[in-house]
């Protein structure tokens, strides 16, 4: 159990958070290798099912990353993402998922440092929570 390393999926919009992740790397900001990015065009394109599926398949944490409000490359995809996310988050919590396992963050293409900070922090949070009950190392 001490060797346990979480598996975290980050859905990152192509125009902000994905770029922020690239910048974090090129500036050599470190964060744990538990973070796995799936590139999507916009946070607004992330279906609720993606998040549910990721948890169901055993991800220990899921993060949705988009552009800051007002900065979405497709005008307002992130507003829609936010509304959808809040709804889903409530449902997931009702279903017994710890609220901290699923998170939404606005990270811009120039926030390389913040990308790394958020990932470090998220990884730490998930480690504290321990393996997801649905996770590879859980019992489900």
């Amino acid at each position: 159990m001490s060797d346990w390393k979480p598996n975290i999926i980050v859905f990152a919009c192509n125009w902000c958070t994905y770029q922020g992740a690239d910048l974090a790397g090129s500036l050599r900001y470190k964060y744990p290798s538990s973070i796995n990015i799936v590139r999507v065009p916009c946070s607004g394109s992330i279906e609720a099912e993606y998040i549910v599926e990721a948890l169901h398949k055993g991800a220990d944490g899921v993060l949705v990353g988009g552009c800051h409000p007002g900065d979405c490359h497709y005008k307002e995809g992130n507003h829609k993402a936010l509304r959808r996310f809040n709804l889903l988050h409530r449902l997931l919590v009702d279903m017994g998922v710890e609220p901290e396992r699923v998170r939404l963050e606005w990270i811009s293409g120039s926030e390389g440092k913040r990308f790394a900070q958020v990932m470090n922090e998220f990884d730490a949070t998930i480690r504290k929570l321990g393996p997801s009950p649905n996770g590879r190392n859980g019992n489900a």
Binding site: S34, Y50, E53, R136
Partner: peptide, 16 residues
């Protein structure tokens, strides 16, 4: 395609 990515990312475990 995205479901397939999720599947792949979760089945190749960290220390798995």
């Amino acid at each position: 395609q995205i479901f397939a990515q999720i599947d792949a990312l979760t089945s190749v475990a960290g220390g798995g």
